[in-house]
Design a protein around this nucleic acid. Structure first.
Lengths: 333, 333
DNA sequence: TTGTACGCGTTATCAG
DNA sequence: CTGATAACGCGTACAA
């Protein structure tokens, strides 16, 4: 374990001073080319590597963006992280991750902890209460919220109004008049938005909309099976594809034909949605782009500008075999 | 944006010195309780928060563990990250993430970059060549490899020998004598291990094993459909569940009955595997535990001990409906 | 028990 | 153009 080579070692070896070495290495403007070459040579020879931590410490805020997600294993967040990471990295920043386990209190602790090491924060699908969010925004670093609208912060979100309209219009176009929504986590803002926009659109389209609570995983969808079956809906919209696939699975296990007896559609269109039986009609959204836009907002803000207007991403309906014409259900159990 | 309160501000306000404040706050041994109380009170009142970066800078190595994964959206890695993150956090460390995009060169760059900010490194399913791995291990911080065996580093991996045996024994028990393996990414060590152990076990069980190349996503499985169908195998083992589900989907689209005409089994048993049609027979492994064990090895090592012996996790076969008795296929196209 | 002074590794300021 | 030197915010010998 060789001793770490420091700036002063290079200076000594090059027969000059630390300032010169620093300048030579950082490409300062006023310095003789020969010295630069010499210093660089010596540095290379000695295997010198600047201590990035010391640099950033000296320079000010850390080039790190702290991110919180409710659950690392949720494919939606994985892709957001992917996009955010790529952009941030391209901008010279690194990602410090925090997982709240869907727990608002934990999320607040995370924010409090991450901010100590971060120059900016991204809250992905924050589960914080309104009050909690206020506290988070009071941090001395810029904060962007993904899928959560809020004042005085960056906002990047899916346009759920458009999303819900696409879904319901598709279903009414197939003749469905009675739709059931299987919801997501109670703390999820986007679940609230989905419900709100669905209700509103349902009213406009004269569709009867019922709602039940759910969650975000396949289990939640599977467990909702009996309730769904006993409802009078001819079509179901699920919080996301995992729930949708779980529900499809229950229907299959219980001999309910999809889509002839029941249509199922969903939000997100994660890759696996194309491979369910039947393939799931879903709303494609650019999740990675959510992360990229979050980073864009951050850079602008870090550059001294005010927060840009919220970025709203309009999803696209991918129609697959899980939705079909409305028909009276053959069997009721 | 209030000015940041520093140690010296607290000292001034408390009418004492920085060292006293520092000691009081850090619970030093020799200091009068009253002073401690007083300092704490003042600090609290001023809303003092230690600059963690300065602390860590002063104290030495950063309390951060850098992690590389080939792809953030691969569910396998998500769960590893989840486990690692939870453990590391419990140990006072944070996770700095890096995604190599399945590119060995990029992974090496990542290692080189992350090490500047990390007190330890975890390479998850490293795609590095042997030489690249050598370089990575030459870093001045301890490195743990997940799903990759190597000398002079921590190693945590799935026991693929046991895994492959479980799979093949299950299939031979159903009468299959001709099995096809649909492989994963060429740079994947674990794909290599799966092949190696499958071959070896196939020989022992007198099973004919064929292999084709694939990848890690549903598309790879779907695209392998025609080749699989035209092979003479009665059972297929796929690199992972995503590939398996993609393959199932192709079989369905093309009217091939699973498992009556073809059995499909796979590695990993990600949650969605239970919801495919038919549900996928797969090898359950504790992915989160891989992360936890990696952290355990790291703490031991950071504590000054030698690297512990590699941790091998034995998977468990979850038999579902995608595997059944071998039968001559009804149709060949 | 407390305070002073120094150092962590770097960059920036200010003389020269 | 270059070299001392002062920070950045904190912990801790050493001295008192």
């Amino acid at each position: 374990m060789a001793e770490r080579v420091r700036l002063i070692d290079v200076a000594r070896e090059a027969g000059t001073s630390v300032s010169t070495v620093s300048r030579a290495l950082n490409g300062s403007d006023l310095i003789s080319p020969e010295v630069v070459a010499h210093v660089r040579a010596v540095a290379g020879q000695l295997g010198y590597r600047a201590d990035k931590r010391a640099q950033e410490f000296k320079l000010g805020r850390p080039l790190t963006v702290g991110v919180t997600v409710p659950d690392l294993t949720n494919p939606f967040f994985s892709e957001v992280l992917k996009g955010l990471n790529a952009s941030a990295r391209a901008g010279g920043y690194r990602l410090l991750i925090g997982e709240s386990s869907e727990d608002p209190a934990e999320e607040l602790r995370l924010v409090d902890e991450l901010v100590d090491y971060s120059g900016a924060l991204v809250l992905c699908s924050s589960r914080l209460t309104r009050a909690g969010l206020e506290k988070a925004l009071a941090q001395p670093v810029p904060v962007v919220c993904i899928n959560r609208t809020v004042k005085n912060a960056g906002v990047v979100a899916i346009d759920y109004r458009a999303a819900s309209r696409l879904l319901l219009e598709h279903l009414t176009g197939l003749g469905h008049r009675r739709v059931l929504y299987v919801g997501g986590p109670a703390t999820s803002w986007s679940d609230g938005e989905r419900r709100r926009t669905l209700r509103r659109t349902a009213r406009a389209l004269d569709v009867t909309l019922d709602e039940i609570d759910g969650g975000w995983s396949g289990n939640h969808g599977y467990d909702a099976g009996p309730t769904v079956l006993h409802s009078r809906a001819t079509a179901v919209i699920t919080f996301n594809d995992l729930v949708g696939i779980g529900l499809l699975s229950w229907m299959y296990d219980n001999g309910v034909e999809v889509p002839s007896e029941l249509s199922v559609a969903s939000y997100d269109d994660i890759p696996i949605a194309a491979y369910s039986r039947p393939p799931l009609t879903s709303l494609r959204n650019e999740r990675a782009k959510l992360g990229e836009l979050a980073w864009e907002q951050l850079t602008k803000r870090l550059g001294g500008a005010d927060w840009p207007a919220p970025d709203l991403l309009t999803p696209e309906l991918v129609v697959r075999a899980s939705t079909g014409p409305a028909r009276r259900r053959a069997r009721i159990r």
